[in-house]
Nucleic acid binder design. Structure first.
Lengths: 72, 72
DNA sequence: ATGTGACTTGAAGTCCGTC
DNA sequence: AGACGGACTTCAAGTCACA
């Protein structure tokens, strides 16, 4: 069970938005103030990201949290 | 800094939506499959809620995660 | 430049209660 | 009905070495 499709969807969305801006995981992680392996884990749907980190990611993408979670 | 205003905003939003539906914290927590003290903590802005629980809360409110995070 | 497993530690989350 | 505390277990956060 443990339906983690929401994590996968969120990861795909982050990856898509990051790429669209021409960031590498590395430079993007730095912008967010997070570790590159952590960002990688998010994009692979392995991390159950919480509000504070979602905000950091959204901010680095120039979006609101609500916009970042569009489709979820 | 450690700006936790996003947690407060999220908590206020949850409280507002829950009340609008006539739920008590207790019955709402049960619907979400979460603990009543945890829901209370969220509404007080003390909890850094992660994606899976946000989804459970959104579902119990009949909303998407994106709709739940409107304003964030 | 990214994937991945393993790891530590601080916070998430539960369960008991009282006010 | 809700705030809040203590004690507890589980998991997210954050980092590392190496593929």
């Amino acid at each position: 069970m443990s339906d983690d499709s929401i994590l996968k969807k969120f990861g795909e969305r982050v990856r898509q938005l990051r790429k669209a801006r021409g960031f590498s995981q590395q430079s993007f992680a730095a912008t967010c103030g997070l570790d590159r392996t952590y960002i990688g884990g998010i994009e692979r749907g392995e991390r159950n990201v919480a509000l504070r980190n979602m905000e950091a990611i959204a901010k680095s993408l120039g979006l609101s949290v609500s916009e970042l979670t569009t489709g979820l």
